[in-house]
Design a binder for these strands. Structure first.
Length: 464
RNA sequence: GGCGGCGUAGCCAAGUGGUAAGGCAGCGCUCUGCAAAAGCGCUAUUCAUCGGUUCAAAUCCGGUCGCCGCCUCCA
């Protein structure tokens, strides 16, 4: 499997550190508000990568941090006049609910920053001891001059870093003590109205970057396989993580850095002021299915800008319906008989092509094309299939879905006696040519999300 | 100023040297009591644009136009 490593800016063949195992760290949410669909594009991409690794039989240890202490969470708590933990817990719960709705596999650990203060302090202490960091006016800063590779990930020349945005930061009261503008804070000295923890280098709270370094090395060791996040994390967050971690441990931090491009909405950057800011809850309230959101956000290449529109979401839902109808038809094949070996070979080849496409830097569009080619090839032959044939194709769809996660197990509900009874009533009306009554029953069932299909083999039904 | 990305049908989107995948939408037809689903057929001589390299370019090189991102705490 080939993937684009931000560190080298080229496609590389994936080689795990320890055979059969993968250590995976993904940057999680800062829990000061509801996540938006842009966040989910990243989380869905990360889920895809993880699922594909699992598909190939790797044992994956996935860590996703929860930033529950930073400027924004503190500000929110102060605005609302409630304890920090109350604010963060609310949004942590909302975050997990959205992950479940989108069928994102849970991480093995969701470490919270506030639960890892000692680990972060130990890391800061190490950096101070090795003189990669210095204390100034109660805060501790990283001295980027000491790290030769600084800027490598972001492809930024340290000397040419424009002091534009940096100058604004430097004007911040707690920053002017730095030796160099580009130095970043590891530990922020105590300020009134902010939570703080005692530390040998002064009471205060952790900087943002240190949490990911401390928590990733705690759960995955000083050197692990893959680290992911949104492109905005490349600089400064991930650049700083590399600096902290490699200076503290003296070893390579991460082998592969994968970054997901942002999405825009209706052609413009998503922002609350433009009114094009969507949360998952907003979209579900408009009647869109979470799986349509998943399909849309996953169906174009992760390194390309994605223009999210409601029309696009509609189209994604339709494409998904085609896939679900295919599965539905397969499940209703009733002809007994042997499996056709030629058909089985076609299905096997299709799965290989699907997998090869995903393996090529996660080309989901190409992989979907492979799958739809198979669907288009099978559909005309649907009536000629045996149960054994159908079982083979359903197994294929399960494998595909193990990677994409777009079909929920609950899509096909158990037969419901009540529904069957209604259908029998409608059949009676149809036999008696009372079509008005028959249509009425069909409409009622549709209200309940039950779609009827009159086929030569009898009435079939499915949930919408 | 520095670094980087994108522009393929009405819409979404693969393809990165061998002659335009796939999905959605649309139109016609088959099936149906009517639908739905499914099927069949149709829908880019052309890949922002100009020029170059090549037997061959959407794919490589150069120019132009348009859009976008990053350069210290935004997924």
């Amino acid at each position: 499997m080939r993937l684009f490593n931000t560190l080298t800016r080229r496609l590389e063949e994936f080689r795990e550190i320890e055979k059969g195992k993968v250590g995976l760290y993904t940057c999680g949410p800062t829990v000061y508000d509801y996540p938006h669909i842009g966040n989910f594009r990243s989380y869905l991409f990360e889920d895809l990568v993880k699922r594909f690794l699992l598909f190939h039989g790797y044992r994956v240890t996935h860590v996703m941090n929860i930033t529950d202490i930073d400027d924004k969470t503190i500000r929110k708590a102060n605005e609302l006049q409630v304890p920090l933990a109350e604010v963060t817990q609310k949004y942590i719960d909302a975050f997990h609910a959205d992950l479940r709705a989108l069928n994102i596999l849970p991480a093995d650990v969701y470490p919270r920053a506030t639960a890892h203060i000692p680990e972060m302090q130990a890391l800061v202490a190490t950096l101070l001891e090795k003189e990669f960091a210095y204390e100034k006016d109660g805060s501790v800063y990283f001295r980027i001059e000491r790290f030769r590779d600084y800027g490598r990930l972001a492809n930024l020349d340290r000397a040419s870093l424009k002091p534009g945005a940096a100058a604004a930061g430097a004007a911040d009261a707690d920053e002017y003590g730095k030796e160099a503008v580009q130095d970043f804070v590891l530990w922020k000295g105590k300020k009134p109205g902010e939570p703080s923890w005692p530390a040998p280098f002064g009471e205060g709270r952790p900087g943002w970057h240190i949490e990911c370094s401390a928590m990733s090395m705690k759960y995955l060791g000083p050197h692990f396989d893959i680290h992911m996040g949104g492109v905005d994390n490349i600089f400064p967050h991930h650049e700083n993580e590399i600096a902290q971690s490699e200076c503290a441990n003296g070893v390579t931090f991460v082998n592969y850095w994968l970054h997901c491009q942002h999405l825009i909405v209706d052609g413009m950057k998503m922002s609350k002021s433009l009114g094009n800011f969507h949360t998952l809850g907003d979209l579900l309230a408009k009647g869109h299915a979470p799986m349509a959101v998943r399909y849309l956000l996953l169906s174009s290449h992760y390194r390309k800008l994605l223009n999210f529109t409601l029309d696009g979401l509609e189209m994604a839902g339709q494409a998904l319906a085609r896939i679900k109808n295919f599965v539905f038809s397969l499940k209703n094949v009733e002809t007994e008989g042997e499996a056709d070996p030629e058909l089985a070979a076609v299905v096997t080849a299709s799965l290989e092509a699907f997998s090869a496409s995903v393996a090529d830097d996660f080309n989901v569009s190409g992989a979907l094309g492979v799958m739809f080619d198979l669907i288009g090839g099978i559909n005309p032959r649907m009536n000629a299939l045996t149960r054994a044939d159908a079982a083979g194709i359903l197994a294929y769809m399960e494998r595909v879905n193990a990677v994409l996660g777009i079909l929920e197990p609950g899509d096909e509900g158990p037969l419901d006696a009540e529904i069957e009874a209604r259908i029998a009533l409608r059949e009676k009306a149809r036999r008696e040519k009372d079509f008005a009554r028959a249509d009425e029953i069909r409409a009622e069932l549709k209200e309940q999300g039950i779609i009827l299909l009159d086929t030569p083999a009898g009435v079939k039904w499915k949930r919408d």
